[in-house]
Amino acid sequence: MKLTDNTILITGGTSGIGRALAQAFHALGNKVIVAGRRKALLDEIAAQHPGIDGIELDIADAGDIARVAKTLIARYPALNVLVNNAGIMPFDNPAGAIDDATSRRILETNLLGPIRLTSALIEHLKAQPRATIIHNTSILAYVPIASNAVYSASKAALHSYALSQRFMLRDTRVTVQEIAPPWVDTDLIKKSGDPRAMPLDAFIAETMKGLATDAPEVLVEAVRPLRDNPGAHEHALVHGFNQSLVDQPIPV
């Protein structure tokens, strides 16, 4: 994508990867709008970075998405980049009973939210001289982590959706890119500072370089071996990956 002269909406833009992307795009002179549920955080980022706008949005609420989409189109007619970044990552245990309400919340946020918001904005994006949709999935879309089975499945589904969407938009002016982060040092799982996590600033720097290309998938080099999931041998890969986390668990 072209990294300048855009009007960009970033969901989940008040913390973590979303906030860092907002700041990186803003520093390049783009008009950036961050969406999130917490007004206090929206106000904070707008105050710290004059020129970044905030808009309240519950990405898990279909009615709220429809309302906000109409507001965005009216308020920002040049909106041409959508970054579907919002996500939640509760722990679960597929070897036991999984709370249905939690599973629904994950799927409403991580999968249906991006689908609904993209659907609400797609005709507007198609009318722009150039537009980009960026889906933030996860390396766990390819190598699931067993302790977050529903989250991993939601990201695998979003990856599949991005593949289909990219094909269906092939004859339009809208391109689709996907970023698939590794474990990045944010508060997504309410834990930060683990030395195994990739520093956020390093992730953003490498990701911005990738987004500046036409690559459909933007991956940091550290996760390419996991992305190259070895077909029929993936069972051993996934087992080994999860065993390594059992042997050295993530502190909670």
Rank of each mutant, 00 (worst) to 15 (best):
T11F: 03
A202W: 07
G240L: 08
V220S: 02
Q23L: 14
M208A: 09
P251D: 13
Q128L: 07
K2A: 12
D228Y: 05
G240S: 10
A222I: 05
D100Y: 12
P94C: 09
R105L: 14
E178L: 08
L245A: 10
I134E: 00
S164M: 11
K191F: 12
I139R: 00
V246F: 11
I145E: 12
V83K: 00
I134T: 02
V184H: 02
D247C: 11
A62W: 09
H135S: 13
R170D: 14
M168P: 10
K155N: 06
D61Q: 09
Y151G: 03
Y142P: 04
A236I: 11
L42I: 09
I115F: 12
A127D: 11
A62D: 13
L57I: 04
T132A: 11
A232S: 12
I98T: 09
K209A: 15
V184M: 02
A46H: 09
L163E: 15
D100G: 10
W183G: 10
A97D: 12
N136I: 13
N148G: 15
G210P: 01
I250F: 13
D214F: 04
Y151N: 00
N6V: 06
H135W: 05
V246W: 10
G12I: 02
L111H: 00
H159Q: 15
P77I: 09
L226Y: 07
S154T: 09
L188H: 04
P216Q: 06
G96S: 12
V68N: 02
